[in-house]
Amino acid sequence: MLSRLAAPLAATALLAAVAAPASAAPAASGQDKPGSYSFAVIGDVPYGADQIAAFPGWIDQINAANPAFTVHVGDIKNGSTRCDNPYYGMIKDDFNRFRNPLIYTPGDNEWTDCHRANNGGYNPLERLSYDRSVFFAQPGTSLGQRPTKVDADTANGFPENVTLRRQGVDLAVVHVVGSNDDLKPWTGIGNTTATPAQVAEENARMASSISTVESAFASAKQKQDRAVAIFLQADMFDPTYAPAWDDISAFKPLVQTLIDQSRAFDGKVYLINGDSHIFNADKPLATGSPWLTTYGVTGSADNLERRTVDGSSNNKDWLKVTVNRPGAAEPLSFERVPYTS
């Protein structure tokens, strides 16, 4: 329940001590051994009091399955609850409950939407800075009790944009969010258009995200790897509604990058996102896809497929991603694993 935020100081300190990352702990199980291994993906969780209460138990269930690591693709709260400081600390403690590494990329609910009155009327860029101070206090290192090293774009101010490589699969986790990547007006604090500060921040963050994706592809091509997987919050190809251009315009440079990089790569490309809350599997950039026309991009990417993870009120499972042995028909395979409670 939300009352977890009001735990006595001693109990909070004890939880932090128990959940603190063990820097000397061994690497996550299975991530460097030959053969297949699995990792978990979650997103848009926890949403609301019931899920806040259930979240530690869900983490325990993921721990019991012992994935090599877990990726949270953003939105650690719903869009109609407050963005107050203690909440971020509580979720970080939850993240450090993961036995193996936890890699997190921010979603829109924890910063871009914080201008809303029911979120506390915060300045979103201040909330973004605070989010980074909580979750990325040690750039280049994941969260979790057995943290792993990642290559982060810390030098450019984006420690959340990271790459890592595991057994012939290159992964990029990038900070790309809904609300048109934060180009929607902050109406809750009186704006009718995106501010110059918003535009400058989005342009710089998108450039970093694109550079991070390109870095993953460069590594995969240089090492002749079999797959690239990209993780982000925004559903740039949401099938549940017909977006206006000002809902998605910010994503066009990344969409073109995905096409260009995928076409130049001989392996498979996987895009895994949250945001729209309903599991979906498709090939949004394949030849003939209407999204190619919607975005006005050139070319297509028939080797790219994606998955949207369940979230929000539909958050009843986590996504198990198995990296199959070399020579398998598909580099990655996917399974939705239901929570038992």
Rank of each mutant, 00 (worst) to 15 (best):
S219G: 06
F217S: 01
V297I: 10
A28W: 08
L258Y: 06
G274I: 05
D50S: 12
M90Y: 14
R263G: 13
S219V: 02
L332I: 08
A16C: 04
R336N: 15
R263M: 07
S341L: 12
Q222I: 00
F237R: 04
G267Q: 01
K268A: 09
A137H: 10
A155W: 07
G327L: 11
K223I: 00
F237E: 03
G178Y: 03
L9I: 14
F231E: 03
N66K: 13
S129R: 13
G178M: 03
T195H: 10
I189M: 03
T298N: 14
I272M: 09
D266H: 06
V177D: 00
G30W: 09
R127A: 08
I52R: 07
H175C: 03
L292C: 08
Y339E: 15
D247M: 05
K283N: 08
I76F: 02
S36E: 11
A328M: 05
A281E: 13
N161C: 03
D310M: 10
R82V: 12
I91H: 06
L125I: 04
H175G: 02
W318C: 13
V173W: 01
A227F: 05
A286I: 08
Y88K: 12
N315S: 13
A27K: 12
M236E: 02
S313N: 10
F98T: 13
Y88C: 14
Y270E: 01
Q51E: 14
P86D: 15
L171E: 06
F98R: 13
